[in-house]
């Protein structure tokens, strides 16, 4: 199961980048959206977002709301978009080679 967790962590960053690229999101909203696709401990999101901001892939802005605390929105920076594109490409390559391997394995049996 531990390997499973590591998989998800790697995928989480990519999912977050893609979701923020679609439209700016605040933390809670992002957590809701991510959980629609992958089951992951939502708490891991905030350290990840802080890292993305620190690395310059994301920037944030605050928006006051009538209900509850102000929402901190995360936006992808141009560098972040480049980073996302590179990651998507890497991911596709990786997934296709692994599925190819799995298919070959099935054919050899």
């Amino acid at each position: 199961m531990d390997i499973h967790v590591q998989f998800k962590k790697g995928a989480l960053e990519l999912c977050v980048l893609v979701l923020i690229h679609r439209k700016p999101c605040y933390g809670f909203e992002l957590a809701q959206q991510v959980s629609q696709y992958i089951q992951v401990a939502e708490g891991a999101l905030y350290p990840l977002l802080r890292r993305l901001v620190a690395d310059g892939h994301c920037s944030t802005y605050l928006q006051e709301s009538n209900e509850g605390p102000p929402r901190k929105y995360y936006v992808l920076t141009p560098e972040g978009e480049q980073y996302m594109n590179a990651m998507v490409e890497e991911w596709n390559k990786f997934v296709s080679s692994v599925s190819k391997l799995l298919k070959e394995g099935a054919a050899n049996e």
Binding site: F28, Y46, R50
Partner: peptide
Amino acid sequence: ELLEDYEHHYAFG
């Protein structure tokens, strides 16, 4: 800042 993120998460939830 990190603790505030989680506090806000509870509020939104």
